[in-house]
């Protein structure tokens, strides 16, 4: 395959890890062990994943293995979200719902419109893009909502005290939190090609693909990510607004993470 990286090439790229270690030692950052550990861990994790993917996405394997992989990714992402944002009530269930919804919508569009062929080779990486890129935004929107409603509790309750419903009282705060979580993704989408060349495209070009073909794939992936981030953040925001208010329109006691 053109552009295939040899083992020698892989080892040589490790020189850059050496540069990072040397810089850390020189400036007394105390990060050299962490850098080495991170580099080694990434190598082992990716090798294991590569071997596993090789087994799962083989054309002769049943697609159910790929879908099982997607389910595992969704579960792991929900667990990670819960761990990173423990202050969000029902964080695991909510994020599980959000990742499931965005996977169903995104993969439904991609495969329903035959944008990509439905096979193991496409299911697992595309689902990984959807879930992986939504994770940070999902954590952010959950934390932001809890912070916002805690800090602005008086304002929320002032709306409730005027006879507004919980949905109406929460709306401005949810909007602010979803905007905060979505704006970085929108900015990334706007800056693509000018400020940086995205990973999918770089990978395809390095692997020898035609640049314009690589661009087409990249654009589809970026739209996929934008849509899935919007879906997960919205699902979390709507779900969380039901959790933090009682059916009789009271704001429950919240426990935001200490700054």
């Amino acid at each position: 395959m053109p552009g295939e990286l040899t083992l020698w090439g892989l080892a040589a790229s490790g020189l850059m890890v050496g540069v990072a270690v040397v810089l850390s030692l020189w400036r007394g950052l105390g990060l050299s062990r962490s850098i080495l550990w991170a580099a080694l861990r990434a190598l082992v994790q990716l090798l294991v994943i590569g071997l596993a993917l090789d087994l799962v996405i083989d054309r002769d394997r049943p697609l159910v293995l790929s879908w099982a992989w997607v389910v595992a990714m969704v579960l792991f992402a929900a667990w990670t979200t819960r761990r990173r944002a423990p202050e969000v009530p029902g964080g695991f269930t909510l994020s599980l719902l959000a990742y499931t919804a965005s996977s169903v919508v995104s993969l439904g569009v991609l495969f329903g419109f035959s944008i990509f062929p439905l096979e193991g080779r496409t299911i697992v990486p595309l689902a990984g893009m959807v879930i992986g890129n939504s994770l940070a935004s999902t954590v952010l929107v959950g934390r932001r909502i809890i912070d916002e409603l805690s800090e602005q509790r008086d304002v929320v309750e002032a709306r409730l005290a005027l006879g507004r419903t919980a949905t109406e009282a929460a709306r401005p705060h949810l909007r602010a939190a979803v905007r905060t979580a979505l704006i970085p993704q929108i900015e990334t989408t706007k800056a693509v090609g000018i400020v940086f060349l995205p990973g999918t495209m770089v990978g395809l070009i390095l692997a020898g693909a035609d640049p314009l073909a690589a661009v087409r794939v990249q654009v589809a992936v970026m739209y996929l990510v934008l849509g899935s981030v919007a879906t997960t953040t919205t699902v979390v925001a709507l779900g969380l607004s039901r959790r933090v208010f009682t059916p009789d329109h009271r704001l429950v006691r919240l426990h935001p993470a200490r700054q």
Binding site: D154, V155, E157, A158, R159, L160, A161, L162, G163, R164, T165, P172, D248, H249, R250
Partner: peptide, 19 residues
Amino acid sequence: PVALRRRVGMVFQTPTPFP
């Protein structure tokens, strides 16, 4: 509760202006 709160209004400790 929504109808009740329109009959029983409340002013808070610190002013709560909305945007």
